[in-house]
Simulated scan of single mutants.
Amino acid sequence: MGSDSSSSAQYIHMVQHLIEECIVFNMSKEECMEALSKHANIKPVITSTVWKELEKENKEFFEAYEKRREEKRSKPESSQSQS
């Protein structure tokens, strides 16, 4: 039974790490759920559950993250076309 709970904890830790990678790429929860389902074969419900727990533990971070994502979406894409 001990190894079962440690493998579950390792799995959740891996999902958390992959979610953090999605955040580095400025992905929404939905985009992250889709990416992990497609590329890591992780069920969206698992990704969503771990994401929600991370939001609870890091409320201020996720509020700021969502705000930054909103600001980026509302800005025109002119910075990319100037290169």
Rank of each mutant, 00 (worst) to 15 (best):
M1D: 15
G2E: 15
G2F: 14
S3Q: 14
S3K: 14
S6E: 12
S6G: 05
S7H: 13
S8A: 15
S8F: 11
S8G: 08
A9S: 14
Q10S: 12
Q10I: 13
M14W: 05
M14L: 15
Q16P: 02
H17F: 13
H17Y: 12
L18K: 01
L18A: 03
L18T: 02
I19D: 00
I19G: 00
E20F: 08
E21Q: 10
E21R: 04
E21Y: 05
C22K: 01
I23S: 01
I23Y: 01
V24Q: 09
F25M: 07
N26C: 07
N26T: 08
M27A: 03
S28K: 03
S28L: 08
S28N: 04
K29C: 09
E31I: 04
E31P: 00
C32F: 01
M33Q: 03
M33D: 02
M33P: 01
M33E: 04
E34Y: 04
E34V: 03
A35T: 09
S37T: 04
S37K: 03
H39W: 09
H39D: 15
A40F: 08
N41G: 05
N41S: 12
N41V: 07
N41M: 10
I42F: 00
P44R: 02
V45A: 08
V45I: 12
I46P: 00
I46S: 05
I46R: 02
T47N: 02
T47C: 06
V50L: 01
V50A: 01
W51E: 00
K52S: 13
K52E: 13
K52V: 06
K52W: 06
E53H: 07
E53Y: 06
E55F: 09
E55P: 05
K56F: 09
K56H: 12
K56Y: 12
E57G: 10
E57R: 10
E57I: 05
E57T: 07
K59N: 11
K59Y: 13
E60Q: 15
E60G: 08
F61M: 12
F61K: 07
F61P: 05
F62G: 02
F62C: 05
F62V: 05
F62L: 08
F62Y: 08
A64R: 15
A64S: 12
Y65F: 13
Y65R: 03
E66Y: 08
E66D: 14
K67N: 09
K67H: 11
R69F: 06
E70G: 05
E70A: 10
E70H: 09
K72P: 02
K72C: 06
R73Q: 14
S74T: 10
K75G: 04
K75F: 06
P76T: 13
E77T: 13
E77M: 13
S78T: 12
S78M: 11
Q80I: 10
Q80V: 09
S81Q: 10
S81T: 12
Q82W: 11
Q82C: 09
S83V: 15
